[in-house]
Amino acid sequence: MSIKIAGVGKRFGDFIALEDIDLDIATGELTALLGPSGGGKSTLLRIIAGLEVADSGSVEIEGVDATGLPAQKRNVGFVFQHYAAFRHLTVAGNVGFGLKIRKRPRKEIAARVNELLELVHLSQFADRLPAQLSGGQRQRMALARALAIEPTVLLLDEPFGALDANVRKELRAWLRRLHDEVHVTTVFVTHDQEEALDVADRIVVINQGRIEQVGPPDELYDHPTSEFVMSFLGPVTTLDGNLVRPHDLVIETHPFGDAFPGRIERFNRVGFEVRLDVRLIQDDVAPPVLVTLTRADATAKALEIGLSVWIAPVAGASQVRITTPVAPTADDLDVSSPASVPEPTFT
């Protein structure tokens, strides 16, 4: 195990940021801490880095008890959401900072900086100041700076949160490739479930200071153990007291199996996808059931507003029984536009 977290708790005044967290992170793994803003995931990351002190519990990094170690002795690479670029130093100066502090020979620093700038594709910008770089370039510089010290673990706090959508996608694919090359144990915080599903080997879902579920992306998506994980990882709708994914519903214009009869109330096409609101006949006070299918499928079945239809979950669809009175919906959790809500920081 590269990182061993045991019984970690943290409060800010009356607010419980983390409560009794146990988590093991394997060497070389790329782990995502996923959860809504204010859920405690950034705090956990900062505790691992030593930028925040836990009220209770212990943190072990590569077999060394790091609980009482200050940040500068943990040999942890940390990447901030807003880059934290050293504004008065050049790109090369930024990347070489950690090595300079370690009093490495000048030649060695220069060689290592060149190598890293090559890795993050910033060689031609070595002599520029951070202010002359774009956001994506600054974040790559910050990443190179963190990697320069050959950290035991690399920690990234919402690393792509401040970038626009296209750059974000590009950078996360690039992070995945980089991790496959460098193989350093990496933990990154995100509230974008798509980012976590796309990049991570393992996802840790954190909500209200507690770990909800830990597992590989597919397992979490297909076998969520709670309503929260089910609704946070993707779109959900309610059918017969169960949470189910709208694309896991079969819709036909004739009765079949145990299908529920209903009527199409809304027909909305978004690109290749068609989203339907189906009002069930047996329960017309509940909110309509959301069904999504491909445009081709919808055309083949000649679906339109007002049509009588029958719907049922597809075989093997992931479903979670609703126990709370009001089920959270994907809209409430704002999973579709994750970049809009910055994680509050507690300093």
């Binding site: 200050p70 500068q72 940390f78 901030f80 670029a85 502090i101 700076r145 963190a146």
Partner: peptide
Amino acid sequence: TEQEQAARSLGAS
């Protein structure tokens, strides 16, 4: 404080 925190995490006293 982020620049200072970054410096600390890079090993600076």
